[in-house]
Amino acid sequence: MSPVPSLWTLLDAVKDPEIPVVSIWELGILQDICQPDEGVVRVKLTPTYSGCPAMDVIAEDIVRTLECSGYPQVEIERSLSPAWSSTWILPNARRRMRNFGIVPPVADSANSIACPQCDSTETLLVSEFGSTACKALYRCSSCGEPFDYFKPI
């Protein structure tokens, strides 16, 4: 991590628009921040999915946030390697994600996906693809509520 703590704190305010309770750093999308030259801030991002439409919005939010704090020269660098992994999501963020109604990714089998409303493990996969590419759609057989599951990738 680069030695610009104030910039990291500043960008804690930038969230994934689809998961507004988790910062892009906690999600693992924000890879690095540095100041290669006087007055220039370079931000390294990695996309969750190749076609994630939220990436453009996130990049715009970063530029706007930094501009408002006196950093008019922002460079966004896209990094692809290593490929983003859902295991990079930080534990605190997983908890908040679940409280928000999105079940965080589970590493191994699909049978331990518990309903975020009632904690029942009697849940069914409705579709591999939910409201966005990163989520699958489930339904709880106990309480009947549908919910999003963040897919392991």
């Binding site: 999915y49 994630c52 939910g130 759609l137």
Partner: peptide, 20 residues
């Protein structure tokens, strides 16, 4: 509806791939 979402999301993956 589920298929609509799935096909659109798969399309996005491919279009994203083409951009890269």
């Amino acid at each position: 509806l589920e298929e609509d979402l799935a096909l659109a999301n798969t399309a996005l993956d491919f279009i994203g791939r083409s951009r890269l």
